[in-house]
Design a protein around this nucleic acid. Structure first.
Lengths: 119, 119
DNA sequence: TTGACACATACCGATATCGGAATATATTAA
DNA sequence: TTAATATATTCCGATATCGGTATGTGTCAA
């Protein structure tokens, strides 16, 4: 056996940087193949092939519009990856941690709110 | 050019399911190579090779202990992946969403707290 | 109907993978 | 020193990738 197919898994599909770039683009708004190619400076066959991989793992949806095909991101398919990576959150080093920072921001907001209510 | 090296990226490194399994194991506690092999039912050379990939992308640390080598996970290296995937959180469908649920739990706690303060 | 446009697919070459088996290296124990 | 243990590395074959180029398919417009 060789390396797993890129289409075997969301993990394998997003291992390719251009496919990640395509996904970032497509979650803003749906786009035609050539628009993606132009915006990312790739050639059309390459984009078509990457989109095929993304479609096979359900990371994008397609819709026909005349002679064009409009692709959009299906962010839901990334949730398993998010969940897997999140398992490790509690093992991250705490200093200058984004979570920590966000938690502090929340606490600050809470304090402010309480002070306001007290006055 | 062919597919990117597995060692070129954390994304490529974690695309392989056995490497993810190894990481899950190593974040609990450091382990020797053969222990990993036993627990995951893999053979030793395979584990050594996977660990080499994980080490090259800084996902694990090694420590010598006599004739053994104790590997441990470096969860921090997963943070870029977490951040990238989290970008898509706001595009997830909202119904039965874990985030939603957690947000609601937070809101409930806040309400309870406020009520307590009011009494 | 023909031509232009948008996109998908097929083919090629170079490359890196992964599993498996064999072997090399390093450390401890006898 | 020698044997045993723990781990790393090397070699092999089969396979799938990715970029590039060429070509196929389908749709609209004149």
């Amino acid at each position: 056996m060789a390396r797993a197919a890129t289409t075997s898994d969301v993990y394998n599909a997003i291992a390719e940087p251009r496919r990640r770039a395509i996904l970032e683009l497509l979650c803003e708004a749906e786009r035609a193949v050539n628009d993606v190619a132009d915006e990312l400076d790739l050639d059309q066959p390459s984009v078509s092939k990457h989109l095929r991989v993304l479609r096979e793992v359900d990371l994008v949806n397609v819709r026909r519009d005349g002679r064009r095909r409009l692709y959009s991101a299906n962010a839901d398919a990334l949730r398993p990856v998010h969940e897997w990576v999140t398992m490790f959150e509690r093992f991250w080093s705490r200093q200058l941690d984004a979570i920590q920072t966000r938690a502090e921001a929340r606490a600050k907001r809470r304090r402010r709110r309480r002070n306001k209510e007290r006055r």
